[in-house]
Amino acid sequence: MTATMYQESPAVAGMSHVPAAAGPSASSQPSITARHRKQLGTFAVSMPFFAYTACFLLAPTLIVIFGAFQSSQGGFTITNFRKLVEPNTISAFATSLLVSFTSALIGAIVGAAAAYALTIGTQPNGMLRRVISAMSSVLAQFGGVMLAFAFIATIGINGVGTMLIRQLTGQTVNPNWLSSLPGLVTVYSYFQIPLMIIIFLPAVDSIRPQWREATENLGGTTWQYWTKIAGPMLLPRFISALLLLFANAFSAYATAAALFSQRSILVPLMIQGAMRNEMDPNQQGFAQVLAFAMIVIVAIVMLLSHALEKRAGRWQ
C-alpha cells in the first residue's frame, strides 16, 4: 500500500499544475452572491472531513500532548518528563533507535541494490519487475502478528529452518535468537527491504542510460560514474528513503509485541506497559510522555526526509 503511495507521487506532483491553470477560466464572471454561494458550498462539503479528522486525529494527538504536561491533580507540570531520563526509559529509547537505524540501513542498502538490479536491462513494464514490485508492496505491509508467525515458523524453537540446520550440521540454533537484537533487526528488515524497493524504484528510474554513455565517451570509468555522477544524484533520495524506513521501524509496534510478550525493550512496548498500568499513580502521564517523545522524533525524521526529497527534486 505504501507502494502505491510512493510510486505515484511523482505523477501526482507532475499533474497538479493542470487544474491550477484551468482554474480561473472556470469562474469566468461570477457575481458576488454566486461566489458567496460557491464558497458556502465548498465549506459545507469539506466540513465533514475536517470535523471527522478533528475528532479522531487532532483530538487524540492533543490528548497525548496535554496529557504529557498534566499532573495527577490536573494542573500543568513538567515533572512527568522526569521519567524520560530514568535508565530504563533511556535504554528503551537507545534500543529502539539502534534497531530502527540498523534495520533501516540494511533495508535501504539491500533494497536500493535490488531496485537498481530491477532496472538493469528490463523494460519499465517487464514481467519480472511488475511481479517483484507487486510482491514488495504486499510484503512492505506484512507486519505484526503474521510476520512474527512467519519467523517463528522459520527459526523459532520448532521452526523449519531450525530443524533443517540441526539435521544438516548438528548444531542447535539458540531458541532465543529471535528475541535478541540481531533477530529483531532481521525480522524488521523483512518489511524494510520491500518498502525500500518500492520507494527507490522511481529514483533509479530517473537515471538515464545516456549519462552512463556520456561518461564512457568522455573517458570516465565505472568507478567515476558511480562516485561522480550517479552517486551524488541518488544520494539525497537515498538518505530521504533511509529516514522514511527509520520512521517506519521506529513506529512499528505489532511485530515486536507479538515476538516479546513480557519484556519492554522498545519504546512502543514501554507505551503498552504504561497504558496497562495507567491506574498506578506512579505512572501518571508516562504513556503520554513516551508517545509525545515519539511524535517529536518521528516528526523531525519525516521533516528531514521531506526536505531532502525536495532537494533531490531540483535535479529532475
Binding site: P60, T61, V64, S251, Y253, A291, M294
Partner: peptide
Amino acid sequence: TIPAIVLVVG
C-alpha cells in the same frame, strides 16, 4: 507521521 501506537494513547 503519527504512529498508530501514539494515536492509541490518545
